[in-house]
Amino acid sequence: MRPLHRIGALCMFAAAAMLVVSCQDSEQDDAAVGGDAEKTITVGFSQIGAESAWRTAETESIRSEAANRGVNLKFSDAQQKQENQIKALRAFIAQQVDAIILAPVVETGWEPILREVRSAGIPVILVDRGVNVSDDSLFATLIASDFVEEGRMAAMWLVEKMDGTGNVVELKGTTGSAPAIDREKGFHEILDAQPGMTIIKSQTGEFTRAKGKEVMEAFLKAEGDRIDAVYAHNDDMAIGAIQAIEEAGRTPGTDVIVVSIDGVRAAFEAMVAGKLNCTVECSPLLGPAAFDAIEAVLAGETLPKNTVVNDRIFDQSTAEAELPNRRY
């Protein structure tokens, strides 16, 4: 048992050391705020984490926009945990920030803390994901892409490209996630109205390259040359599917049309190479819209509850010109 005790003590020591370090960090932050809090506005930003390039780009957009407008931004990374976000919001209240930007990690469980924030008189701007609350005056506005519309845009592009005939297979996102549900809904809405087009297979590729490739391989074996097009709920799965199509001896982009959503850099590279046909952008660059909303709210305006980000669609003809502008 002895060694166990020693390890226990070591762990406690390490934990204590971490606590001290993190306390020092937040103190430094406070000091920095104290200096110029009188003139400039202070905004607290509770971000989910840094789990993908998309999210890193979103953080970067909000940070750089804050710097551009001379806003004092207090950033908190929740490392995928709601309790960290709630703690961060409490800290923002204590620091009397002027507004809060929140990217909620889940939809539920926000009511009590948002009530606390409201009674402190601080407006909340939600970015990229919504919350489930009984009273929608708890937040000023939600700035996000319309996933259903993204699905519709992809479907409409595909219908036009294929003249309304052909068999489509669908690579869905993680089962139950909001983008997977909505991107499926929008896509089916358009395609169901097309008698000549059928979705012959549909499976989850869990938003990853590896799974997208595996699922596509199975589809190609089961359906063979009947597959005319692939619709992937994100670019990564499309890139996986492209490899599977190539390995089956067919040419992605011509034999099999590939359409996806997100508009990450790798997708633009694939379009320039002629392997991906089209991607619908789901922009993470929400900084400008978020700070526009904050300025409007602080000026006393009432905002619509949903601020929809205008997503653009890119195909091979526009990809090359756009590629240098892709930051994520």
Binding site: K172, T175, K201, S202, Q203, T204, E214, V215, A218, F219, K221, A222
Partner: peptide
């Protein structure tokens, strides 16, 4: 995957 069992 090849039989098209619904994801759920």
């Amino acid at each position: 995957l090849s039989r098209g069992v619904p994801v759920e």
